[in-house]
Computed example of a mutant assay.
Amino acid sequence: MQTDVSEIADGVYRLSTFVPQIGPTGFTFNQFLVDADEPLLFHYGQRALFPLVSEAVRRVIPLEKLRWTTCSHVEADESGALNQWLAAAIHATPAHGQVGCNIWLTDMADRPPRALKDDEVLDLGGKRVRWLDTPHVPHNWDAGVIYEETTGTLFSSDLFTQMGPASPTTESDIVGPAIATEKAVPFMPATPLAAPTLRRLAALAPTTIALMHGPTFKGDGGAALTALADHYDARLSPA
Protein backbone atom coordinates (compact mmCIF):
# COMPACT_ATOMS: atom_id res chain seq x y z
CA MET A 1 0.00 0.00 0.00
CA GLN A 2 0.98 3.63 -0.42
CA THR A 3 -0.49 7.00 0.47
CA ASP A 4 -0.83 9.37 -2.47
CA VAL A 5 -0.84 13.16 -2.07
CA SER A 6 -2.95 15.42 -4.30
CA GLU A 7 -3.71 19.13 -4.00
CA ILE A 8 -7.49 19.27 -4.42
CA ALA A 9 -7.89 23.01 -3.79
CA ASP A 10 -5.47 25.83 -3.10
CA GLY A 11 -3.42 24.68 -0.12
CA VAL A 12 -5.73 21.70 0.58
CA TYR A 13 -4.22 18.23 0.21
CA ARG A 14 -5.85 14.81 -0.05
CA LEU A 15 -3.80 11.99 1.53
CA SER A 16 -5.27 8.84 0.01
CA THR A 17 -4.61 5.19 0.86
CA PHE A 18 -6.30 2.43 -1.12
CA VAL A 19 -6.74 -0.83 0.81
CA PRO A 20 -7.52 -3.61 -1.71
CA GLN A 21 -8.34 -6.25 0.91
CA ILE A 22 -11.59 -4.57 2.02
CA GLY A 23 -14.72 -5.83 0.26
CA PRO A 24 -14.88 -7.10 -3.31
CA THR A 25 -13.36 -3.98 -4.89
CA GLY A 26 -11.22 -2.44 -2.14
CA PHE A 27 -11.77 0.76 -0.18
CA THR A 28 -10.17 4.20 -0.13
CA PHE A 29 -9.29 6.03 3.10
CA ASN A 30 -8.59 9.75 2.79
CA GLN A 31 -7.20 12.25 5.27
CA PHE A 32 -6.94 15.95 4.48
CA LEU A 33 -4.34 18.59 5.25
CA VAL A 34 -5.18 22.30 5.18
CA ASP A 35 -1.89 24.14 4.77
CA ALA A 36 -1.88 27.61 6.30
CA ASP A 37 0.03 29.57 8.91
CA GLU A 38 -1.48 27.09 11.41
CA PRO A 39 -2.01 23.87 9.41
CA LEU A 40 -4.89 21.53 10.24
CA LEU A 41 -5.33 17.79 9.69
CA PHE A 42 -8.85 16.37 9.24
CA HIS A 43 -9.23 12.65 10.09
CA TYR A 44 -6.53 10.87 12.08
CA GLY A 45 -6.94 7.55 10.28
CA GLN A 46 -6.28 4.09 11.67
CA ARG A 47 -3.24 3.41 13.81
CA ALA A 48 -2.00 0.88 11.23
CA LEU A 49 -1.96 3.54 8.51
CA PHE A 50 -0.20 6.21 10.58
CA PRO A 51 3.32 5.51 9.20
CA LEU A 52 2.11 5.89 5.62
CA VAL A 53 -0.08 8.94 6.21
CA SER A 54 2.39 10.79 8.42
CA GLU A 55 5.09 10.31 5.79
CA ALA A 56 2.68 11.73 3.21
CA VAL A 57 2.10 14.82 5.38
CA ARG A 58 5.89 15.25 5.63
CA ARG A 59 5.97 15.65 1.85
CA VAL A 60 3.94 18.85 2.31
CA ILE A 61 4.96 20.26 5.72
CA PRO A 62 7.14 19.23 8.66
CA LEU A 63 5.02 17.45 11.28
CA GLU A 64 6.12 19.92 13.95
CA LYS A 65 4.39 22.68 11.93
CA LEU A 66 0.95 21.05 12.37
CA ARG A 67 -1.15 23.12 14.80
CA TRP A 68 -4.64 21.60 14.71
CA THR A 69 -6.10 18.11 14.36
CA THR A 70 -9.73 17.07 14.25
CA CYS A 71 -12.14 14.50 12.79
CA SER A 72 -15.86 13.99 12.29
CA HIS A 73 -16.63 11.41 14.99
CA VAL A 74 -15.13 8.63 17.07
CA GLU A 75 -14.42 5.58 14.89
CA ALA A 76 -11.23 3.70 14.05
CA ASP A 77 -10.67 5.27 10.63
CA GLU A 78 -11.58 8.72 11.96
CA SER A 79 -9.76 8.80 15.29
CA GLY A 80 -7.69 5.63 15.75
CA ALA A 81 -4.28 7.30 15.35
CA LEU A 82 -5.19 10.31 17.54
CA ASN A 83 -2.37 9.97 20.02
CA GLN A 84 0.19 8.90 17.43
CA TRP A 85 -0.43 12.23 15.72
CA LEU A 86 -0.20 14.15 18.98
CA ALA A 87 3.12 12.46 19.78
CA ALA A 88 4.56 13.24 16.34
CA ALA A 89 3.08 16.73 15.91
CA ILE A 90 4.21 18.18 19.22
CA HIS A 91 2.56 21.60 18.72
CA ALA A 92 -0.83 20.33 17.55
CA THR A 93 -4.03 20.78 19.55
CA PRO A 94 -6.86 18.26 19.07
CA ALA A 95 -10.22 19.92 18.45
CA HIS A 96 -13.80 18.72 18.21
CA GLY A 97 -17.36 19.77 18.91
CA GLN A 98 -18.46 20.11 22.50
CA VAL A 99 -20.29 16.76 22.51
CA GLY A 100 -17.25 14.93 21.18
CA CYS A 101 -15.03 16.54 23.79
CA ASN A 102 -17.51 15.58 26.50
CA ILE A 103 -18.04 11.94 25.56
CA TRP A 104 -14.61 10.81 24.36
CA LEU A 105 -11.89 13.24 23.29
CA THR A 106 -11.08 14.77 26.68
CA ASP A 107 -10.55 11.28 28.09
CA MET A 108 -8.82 9.70 25.09
CA ALA A 109 -6.46 12.46 23.94
CA ASP A 110 -3.01 12.75 25.49
CA ARG A 111 -3.36 16.56 25.38
CA PRO A 112 -6.34 18.72 26.40
CA PRO A 113 -8.65 19.38 23.44
CA ARG A 114 -10.17 22.59 22.17
CA ALA A 115 -13.98 22.43 22.21
CA LEU A 116 -15.57 24.10 19.18
CA LYS A 117 -19.05 25.58 19.19
CA ASP A 118 -21.40 24.93 16.30
CA ASP A 119 -20.51 27.39 13.50
CA GLU A 120 -17.28 28.44 15.23
CA VAL A 121 -14.47 29.43 12.86
CA LEU A 122 -10.80 28.64 13.37
CA ASP A 123 -8.70 31.29 11.65
CA LEU A 124 -5.66 29.33 10.50
CA GLY A 125 -3.96 32.32 8.90
CA GLY A 126 -4.72 32.29 5.18
CA LYS A 127 -7.47 29.68 5.64
CA ARG A 128 -10.68 29.74 7.69
CA VAL A 129 -12.21 26.47 8.88
CA ARG A 130 -15.78 26.42 10.18
CA TRP A 131 -16.93 23.59 12.49
CA LEU A 132 -20.52 22.40 11.94
CA ASP A 133 -22.31 20.07 14.36
CA THR A 134 -24.05 17.29 12.38
CA PRO A 135 -25.26 14.79 15.01
CA HIS A 136 -25.95 11.34 13.49
CA VAL A 137 -24.95 12.62 10.03
CA PRO A 138 -23.23 10.52 8.82
CA HIS A 139 -23.49 8.73 12.19
CA ASN A 140 -22.73 9.04 15.90
CA TRP A 141 -23.95 11.68 18.35
CA ASP A 142 -20.67 13.59 18.26
CA ALA A 143 -20.53 13.93 14.46
CA GLY A 144 -19.47 17.15 12.79
CA VAL A 145 -17.88 18.31 9.56
CA ILE A 146 -15.69 21.26 8.62
CA TYR A 147 -15.94 23.81 5.83
CA GLU A 148 -12.92 25.74 4.57
CA GLU A 149 -14.34 29.10 3.58
CA THR A 150 -11.59 30.53 1.34
CA THR A 151 -11.65 27.57 -1.08
CA GLY A 152 -15.30 26.54 -0.68
CA THR A 153 -14.25 23.05 0.44
CA LEU A 154 -16.59 20.90 2.53
CA PHE A 155 -14.91 17.96 4.27
CA SER A 156 -17.84 15.55 4.29
CA SER A 157 -16.54 12.56 6.29
CA ASP A 158 -18.52 9.42 5.34
CA LEU A 159 -21.15 11.29 3.31
CA PHE A 160 -21.08 10.18 -0.35
CA THR A 161 -19.00 7.08 0.44
CA GLN A 162 -18.03 4.99 -2.60
CA MET A 163 -16.45 1.56 -2.81
CA GLY A 164 -13.37 0.73 -4.87
CA PRO A 165 -10.39 2.83 -6.00
CA ALA A 166 -10.90 6.52 -6.68
CA SER A 167 -9.13 9.22 -8.64
CA PRO A 168 -8.12 12.36 -6.72
CA THR A 169 -10.95 14.48 -8.18
CA THR A 170 -14.09 14.00 -10.22
CA GLU A 171 -16.84 16.08 -11.78
CA SER A 172 -19.05 13.01 -12.19
CA ASP A 173 -22.17 12.19 -10.19
CA ILE A 174 -21.44 11.30 -6.55
CA VAL A 175 -25.06 10.91 -5.43
CA GLY A 176 -25.92 7.69 -7.27
CA PRO A 177 -22.82 5.83 -6.05
CA ALA A 178 -23.45 7.10 -2.52
CA ILE A 179 -27.02 5.80 -2.49
CA ALA A 180 -25.86 2.44 -3.87
CA THR A 181 -23.21 2.16 -1.15
CA GLU A 182 -25.66 3.11 1.59
CA LYS A 183 -28.11 0.45 0.40
CA ALA A 184 -25.37 -2.18 0.52
CA VAL A 185 -23.89 -0.96 3.83
CA PRO A 186 -26.53 1.09 5.70
CA PHE A 187 -24.14 3.17 7.80
CA MET A 188 -26.21 6.38 8.05
CA PRO A 189 -29.46 6.38 10.04
CA ALA A 190 -32.47 7.74 8.17
CA THR A 191 -33.69 9.97 11.01
CA PRO A 192 -35.65 13.24 10.87
CA LEU A 193 -32.29 14.99 11.37
CA ALA A 194 -30.77 13.67 8.15
CA ALA A 195 -32.36 15.79 5.42
CA PRO A 196 -32.39 19.11 7.34
CA THR A 197 -28.73 18.67 8.23
CA LEU A 198 -27.82 17.93 4.61
CA ARG A 199 -29.81 20.97 3.45
CA ARG A 200 -27.94 23.13 5.94
CA LEU A 201 -24.67 21.94 4.39
CA ALA A 202 -26.09 22.51 0.90
CA ALA A 203 -26.74 26.16 1.80
CA LEU A 204 -22.97 26.63 2.07
CA ALA A 205 -22.82 26.05 -1.72
CA PRO A 206 -19.45 24.26 -1.62
CA THR A 207 -17.59 23.98 -4.91
CA THR A 208 -15.44 21.14 -3.59
CA ILE A 209 -16.58 18.18 -1.47
CA ALA A 210 -13.71 16.21 0.03
CA LEU A 211 -14.97 12.64 0.46
CA MET A 212 -13.31 10.45 3.07
CA HIS A 213 -14.02 7.35 0.98
CA GLY A 214 -13.95 8.20 -2.71
CA PRO A 215 -12.79 11.00 -5.02
CA THR A 216 -13.00 14.69 -4.25
CA PHE A 217 -15.98 16.18 -6.05
CA LYS A 218 -15.55 19.43 -8.01
CA GLY A 219 -18.75 21.15 -9.03
CA ASP A 220 -22.13 22.15 -7.63
CA GLY A 221 -21.82 20.74 -4.13
CA GLY A 222 -25.07 22.36 -3.04
CA ALA A 223 -26.99 20.43 -5.68
CA ALA A 224 -25.32 17.13 -4.69
CA LEU A 225 -26.15 17.66 -1.00
CA THR A 226 -29.72 18.65 -1.85
CA ALA A 227 -30.16 15.50 -3.93
CA LEU A 228 -28.87 13.38 -1.04
CA ALA A 229 -31.27 15.21 1.30
CA ASP A 230 -34.15 14.44 -1.07
CA HIS A 231 -33.17 10.77 -0.91
CA TYR A 232 -33.42 10.72 2.88
CA ASP A 233 -36.68 12.70 2.82
CA ALA A 234 -38.13 10.07 0.48
CA ARG A 235 -36.99 7.23 2.77
CA LEU A 236 -38.93 8.75 5.65
CA SER A 237 -42.04 9.65 3.64
CA PRO A 238 -45.16 7.46 4.00
CA ALA A 239 -45.51 4.92 1.18
Rank of each mutant, 00 (worst) to 15 (best):
T153A: 08
G152H: 08
H73A: 12
L41I: 13
T161D: 05
I61E: 03
T28C: 13
H139Q: 12
V60Q: 00
T169I: 15
R128N: 11
D220P: 04
T25K: 06
V145S: 09
H231G: 00
T181E: 11
V57R: 01
L41G: 05
S167L: 14
D233S: 09
M212C: 12
D133T: 14
V121E: 04
D10R: 11
T170F: 09
L159M: 14
G100A: 10
T134Y: 04
L40K: 03
R128L: 01
L66P: 10
D37W: 06
P51H: 06
L204W: 08
R14E: 09
F187A: 14
T226G: 03
E78R: 06
P189G: 13
V60S: 00
L86I: 02
P177H: 07
E148Q: 10
E182K: 05
P196N: 10
T106H: 09
P94G: 10
K65P: 00
R67I: 09
V129K: 13
A202S: 11
A87C: 06
L132V: 15
S172I: 00
V129Q: 04
K117C: 13
M212T: 12
R111G: 04
H139Y: 14
I22M: 07
P215Y: 12
R14Y: 02
S79I: 09
A81T: 09
G45L: 07
G45P: 05
M212W: 01
P215W: 08
A109F: 10
L122C: 08
T93R: 13
T208W: 00
A95M: 02
D4A: 12
D107P: 01
V99Q: 03
A180Y: 00
V137N: 03
M212F: 10
F155E: 08
R199Y: 03
Q2R: 14
K65H: 13
L236V: 06
T208D: 05
S79E: 12
V74H: 14
F18V: 03
T161P: 02
D119I: 02
P196K: 11
A229C: 05
W85A: 02
A203G: 13
R128V: 03
V175N: 01
V74P: 04
F187L: 13
Y44W: 11
P206G: 06
K127A: 15
I146E: 01
I8G: 00
F217G: 03
A180W: 02
T169N: 06
D119V: 03
Q162F: 13
F29H: 12
D110T: 15
E55A: 15
G126Q: 08
Y44D: 10
G26H: 01
N30G: 03
R235P: 00
L66H: 06
A76P: 10
E149C: 05
H136A: 05
F42L: 10
R114K: 11
L41P: 09
D110S: 15
N140G: 14
